[in-house]
C-alpha cells in the first residue's frame, strides 16, 4: 500500500508539473496576452482567397464572414469558386480540383500535380498548410492561398494577396523556399519554442531515463 501511495505521489508530481507547463502554454495563448493573435469583432470580418493556376493565372477574392473565425473550407465555399475534394481520415478535406483545374481527375491528390494550400495569418508570409482545408482556421485579415504545383519539389507560394481585401492586412509575397511548415498549418504567434514540444521532451526524457534505470537494475540482478 505504501508503494501505491509513493507511486501515486510521483505520478501526481509529474502530472502537476506537466499541467503547469500546459496551463502556462494555454495562458500564453489566451486572449489579451501579448502572444495572442488579435481577435477582431465577429461582424464584418474579411479574409482573402488567392488561387494561382498551373499556367500562372491568378484569381483573387475578398470573402466576408459573420463569425469570428472561418474554416478554410468555409471560406472557399463562401467565395463561390467551384471546387471538389476528398476527405482523408486524420487529415481533413483535400482539394482535388479548383476553378476547373484539373478538368477531370481519377486520383486525388494528382500524381503529377496537386493543389498546395497556404495560409497567411495577420498579414504574415505564406505558410504551407499540412492539414486539410476543413482543419484550417482563418480570422479577420488572414488569407488562404492555393497554387497548382508539381508533385515533385518544394511547392512555391501563390501570388501575393495584397489588394484582395482593401483595408485588411495583406501577406508578403512568399515565404522562404524550403521553409518547414508548422505542425498546425498556421504560423505560431509566439515564434518561440512550442510549449507542447517542451512538455513532450521533458516527459520523454523522464520515461527514457526510467527505462535505462530499469535495464541497468535488471542487468545487475541477473549478474548476481
Amino acid at each position: 500500500m505504501r508503494r501505491l501511495f509513493l507511486a501515486s505521489a510521483i505520478l501526481a508530481s509529474l502530472l502537476t508539473a506537466s499541467l503547469s507547463l500546459a496551463a502556462a502554454a494555454l495562458a500564453a495563448l489566451a486572449p489579451g496576452s501579448p502572444l495572442a493573435a488579435p481577435c477582431a469583432a465577429a461582424a464584418g470580418n474579411r479574409a482573402a482567397l488567392v488561387v494561382e493556376h498551373g499556367d500562372g493565372s491568378v484569381l483573387s477574392r475578398c470573402v466576408a464572414f459573420g463569425t469570428a473565425t472561418v474554416t478554410g473550407e468555409g471560406l472557399l465555399n463562401s467565395s463561390g469558386v467551384a471546387w471538389s475534394g476528398q476527405t482523408f481520415a486524420g487529415f481533413g478535406d483535400a482539394v482535388c480540383a479548383l476553378d476547373a483545374e484539373p478538368a477531370r481527375y481519377s486520383v486525388c491528390p494528382g500524381k503529377d500535380s496537386y493543389w498546395a494550400v497556404f495560409v497567411s495569418s495577420g498579414g504574415g508570409p505564406w505558410q504551407l498548410a499540412d492539414v486539410g482545408i476543413s482543419s484550417l482556421t482563418l480570422g479577420n485579415g488572414d488569407a488562404e492561398g492555393f497554387r497548382y504545383v508539381p508533385s515533385i519539389g518544394a511547392p512555391a507560394a501563390p501570388a501575393s494577396a495584397v489588394g484582395a481585401c482593401p483595408g485588411a492586412a495583406a501577406p508578403t509575397p512568399a515565404a522562404p523556399s524550403g521553409s518547414v511548415a508548422p505542425g498546425s498549418g498556421v504560423p505560431s504567434p509566439s515564434g518561440g519554442a512550442d510549449p507542447g514540444w517542451l512538455v513532450a521532451a521533458g516527459v520523454g526524457g523522464a520515461l527514457a531515463g526510467l527505462a535505462i534505470l530499469r535495464l541497468v537494475a535488471r542487468r545487475r540482478s541477473s549478474d548476481t
Binding site: 486524420g90 496537386y114 492539414v131 524550403g178 518547414v180 512538455v199
Partner: peptide, 27 residues
C-alpha cells in the same frame, strides 16, 4: 490537431500538452 502529415514537405508534428500528460496516465 492530433495527426501528422509530412507531405508534401517535412513538418514538425503538432503536440498538445494535455495529450502528453495523458500519455503519463499509462505509466
Amino acid at each position: 490537431p492530433m495527426d501528422w502529415d509530412p507531405y508534401p514537405t517535412l513538418s514538425s508534428p503538432p503536440i498538445h500538452p494535455l495529450a502528453v500528460v495523458g500519455c503519463l496516465g499509462l505509466a
